[in-house]
Amino acid sequence: MSKKLGWKELPFGDSIKAGTAEQFETGDWRSLKPIWYADRCIHCMRCWINCPDSSIEVKDGKMTGIDLKHCKGCGICAFECPVKKPGKAITMEAER
């Protein structure tokens, strides 16, 4: 853990630079892990839209993977995935 700041060292007025959530690795919270099957994925972006932690990695309009440092394992991506055959492009597995 880093040293906590004193009040004189704090940034002004109950504000902080944006985007600091990235430094908070919520991947530690996960008990279920999403598994992505690239060959089944149709790149519809439903998982990307619905992911509450912005953990779906995308490049050039295509899904490229899942950021497991921040994914909390909520399973919304797997639930929303519309692919039926041969199975969902994202499924949840227990962490071990």
């Binding site: 700041l5 009040w7 704090l10 002004f12 109950d14 504000s15 902080i16 630079k17 944006a18 985007g19």
Partner: peptide
């Protein structure tokens, strides 16, 4: 203004969640 939220070159978060570790310090200013 000191830190305008609409300054898009320096994006910031306003109204932080400060629990036991920082709330007290944030009242001192």
């Amino acid at each position: 203004p000191t830190l305008p939220l609409l300054d898009i070159k320096e994006p910031k978060t306003f109204g932080l969640l400060d629990l036991q570790d920082y709330y007290f310090e944030h009242k001192m200013p």
